[in-house]
């Protein structure tokens, strides 16, 4: 499945230079060269930069609840960053903020140094529950973002073909969403997001609900598509192994309020496999750190129950 020679598209955008770099990296089997931590010169080239992001909201009792606290994060063009944390640490919320669907209480999100003020097609979020449109066919779903952008019909058709082929769903162009399996729906969501040609792809636990085989397959495909298209990806998951399998960098979040606890650079050679000893070993290290946070989240849950 991975050896499918997908033709390069006849259309190309400026996002393709990091693509080639990523592809070469991938072919050479070399891990990403270390990006130095928070050095000032990185700022100029960062694709996504989060500065002092905090978010609080009113809880049921009327008390202010701090969901995210002082998040600072820079993501380089073409980088694959995985965000890991216990459930309830605000990692999904973070993606909504980057997507512009929600506004932070303080701090700001910048894409290419431009302030994010609302949703934009330069960054597309793939929701955990996908949000595919059941009233449209697979092809029309993929077309949707392009239609909103006002791309001509001929070009849209060409791109639908291209992106459906990229996710191996060309035969299902005229199917409706309910006729597809979970893994196929995942791929439609991926194709729909890619078709608007965003610089940044935001993925919210996309493979959490899938069986292990389908997930493995989609890991391979995502890695391949990432290498081919050179998108910047921010991938949220609670599965540390998945994060190590996919990411150039893994960012560990604390439990409530969500803060960046630690960052790990993963310079293991690609393509990786979930079963690789090196992946498992790296995951182990991160997991030790994560366990502390998971315990905190469990404690919070239990004390909540006890209080009831």
């Amino acid at each position: 499945m991975t050896a499918n020679p997908t033709p390069q598209p006849s259309f190309s955008g400026d996002h393709r230079s990091p693509a080639r770099a990523a592809l070469n990296r991938w072919k050479a089997g070399v891990g990403l060269a270390v990006l130095p931590h928070r050095q000032p010169e990185v700022k100029a080239t960062a694709k996504v930069s989060l500065q002092g992001i905090s978010l609080s909201y009113k809880a049921n009792g009327g008390t202010q609840l701090l969901a995210l606290e002082d998040i600072n994060l820079k993501v380089n063009p073409g980088e694959f960053v995985c965000v890991v944390g216990p459930s309830g640490c605000g990692k999904s919320t973070l993606l909504h903020l980057i997507a512009g669907l929600q506004q932070p209480t303080s701090g700001n999100v910048r894409i290419d140094d431009k302030l994010v003020e609302g949703p934009g097609t330069d960054r597309i979020l793939i929701f955990q529950e996908l949000g595919l449109f059941p009233w449209l066919t697979v092809g029309e779903n993929v077309e949707f973002g392009m239609k909103m952008k006002g791309i001509s019909k001929a070009e849209r058709q060409e791109k639908i073909q291209y992106y459906l082929r990229l996710v191996h769903l060309a035969k299902f162009k005229d199917s409706y969403i309910h006729q597809l399996s979970g893994g196929m729906r995942q791929r439609v969501a991926l194709a729909r997001a890619l078709a608007t040609e965003p610089d940044v792809l935001l993925m919210d636990e996309p493979f959490a609900a899938l069986d292990a085989q389908t997930r493995d397959l989609l890991h391979d495909e995502l890695e391949r598509i990432w290498a081919e298209t050179g998108r910047t990806i921010i991938f949220v998951t609670h599965n540390v192994r998945e994060a190590v399998r996919l990411g150039d960098r893994v960012v560990l979040f604390t439990f409530r309020p969500g803060r960046v606890k630690r960052e790990f650079l993963i310079d293991l050679p690609r393509p990786r496999q979930l079963e690789d000893v090196t992946v498992a070993k790296t995951a182990r290290e991160i997991l030790d750190d994560l366990r502390e946070e998971i315990n905190k989240s469990l404690e919070a849950e239990y004390s909540h129950e006890a209080a009831r």
């Binding site: 997507a99 669907l101 949703p119 934009g120 097609t121 597309i124 979020l125 929701f127 996908l130 949000g131 595919l132 449109f133 949707f144 973002g145 909103m148 952008k149 729909r192 608007t196």
Partner: peptide, 8 residues
């Protein structure tokens, strides 16, 4: 949300 996210 998905619609706004895709630019509608």
């Amino acid at each position: 949300m998905a619609g706004r996210n895709l630019g509608a």
